[in-house]
Design a protein around this nucleic acid. Structure first.
Length: 311
DNA sequence: AAGACGAAAGTGGTTGA
DNA sequence: TCAACAACTTTCGTCTT
């Protein structure tokens, strides 16, 4: 019954950057992180199976709940019965031909009951899309489930009418990412869907105000670890960046500014002061802003924080 | 030659009358 | 609903390494 798992990121044991074996899986953010240098080794690992794992029977007992786990990402929350298409019984034996017709009728009814009307069908389609997009972006499971919940609420509130399903799915994903502090930019979401950034933004605003999501504006800090690892910067740079951003936030240099731009500028500064220099273009590409924005932000930062940069 | 700099004009979104 | 506005982008010429 248990199929052999194909090798995943969990088979990586040594940090390719510093050789440390001190790796940690951050399930909340969906990242595999080196504890020593801070490198995010892989943020696109595929999660298989339930959201928890047990390593021995006592843990399994503590963590297991009765019945199947609720899964909001499946349109009937994963609680319905599934009938396999195989003509075998649960022991793997072939079902006698005289029962085949009966099985066929059972399956047909099962389908009709499960996906009975247009609303259900749309929900099933939407959640399939959600899963596809989230998977291609490497978003962790909790973000997907959260997004699925938001989508259900949107359906209940009749917020879908007049909007494309994919736009709403993208918007809920975006909202979910922000709620759980694993922000992705609108650009990134737009790149993974067939919906324009404009549409997603509009739909997002509509949904979040209708559902009263009260989301804080994204903080630059939330982007740092992802950007830094994409730039292959060490944990030292990351920490320095955080320090700069904290100070900047304290002096109100971040409000009103685009968080990605501020994050990019702080990373740029930290990369120089920590002797791991990256060009403005490199940082700009990763952060999805232009060099000009980085220049503007970083001039503000070094002026107001009294950081001197000597080459 | 690549990177950094800065000016100027253009874009899309927010705000307030 | 519209215009003002700030943030950000694009483009381009110039300077620095």
């Amino acid at each position: 019954m248990q199929k052999k798992k194909k090798p995943t990121v969990e088979t990586i044991e040594v940090c390719p950057e510093c050789g440390s074996k001190n790796l940690r899986m951050d399930y909340d953010r969906g990242e595999l992180i080196c504890e020593d240098c801070g490198l995010v080794i892989d943020d696109t690992f595929i999660d298989e199976g339930p959201e928890w794992r047990s390593f021995d029977s006592s843990q399994a007992e503590k963590r297991a709940r009765t019945g199947a786990p609720m899964n909001y990402a499946i349109h009937d929350k994963g609680l319905s019965t599934e009938i396999s298409w195989r003509n075998t019984d649960s022991y793997g034996n072939a079902i006698p031909s005289k029962n085949r017709a009966q099985m066929y009728r059972l399956r047909r009814w099962q389908k009709r009951i499960r996906i009975s009307n247009a609303a259900e069908r749309n929900l099933a389609y939407a959640l399939g899309e959600l899963e596809r997009i989230a998977a291609s972006m490497g978003l962790p499971r909790n973000v997907r489930e959260n997004a699925a919940m938001l989508y259900r609420k949107a359906v209940e509130g009749n917020l879908i009418r007049g909007r494309s399903i994919e736009a709403v799915v993208a918007a809920t994903l975006y909202a979910s990412c922000r709620q759980l502090n694993v922000p992705r930019t609108l650009d990134e979401i737009a790149a993974a869907t067939r919906v324009g950034k404009k549409d997603i933004g509009r739909t997002y605003r509509f949904i979040s105000s209708s559902l009263q999501l009260r989301l804080m504006p994204t903080r630059p800090q939330d982007y740092v670890s992802r950007f830094c690892s994409e730039l292959k910067l060490s944990g030292k740079v990351q920490m320095e960046t955080m320090r700069i951003l904290d100070e900047a936030a304290h002096k109100e240099l971040t409000s009103g500014r685009g968080p990605t731009g501020v994050a990019a500028a702080a990373i740029y500064i930290a990369s120089i002061t920590m002797n791991e220099r990256r060009t403005q273009r490199e940082v700009a590409d990763v952060a999805g802003v232009t060099e000009v924005t980085i220049r503007n932000r970083y001039k503000e930062l070094i002026k107001n924080l009294g950081i001197s940069i000597d080459y």
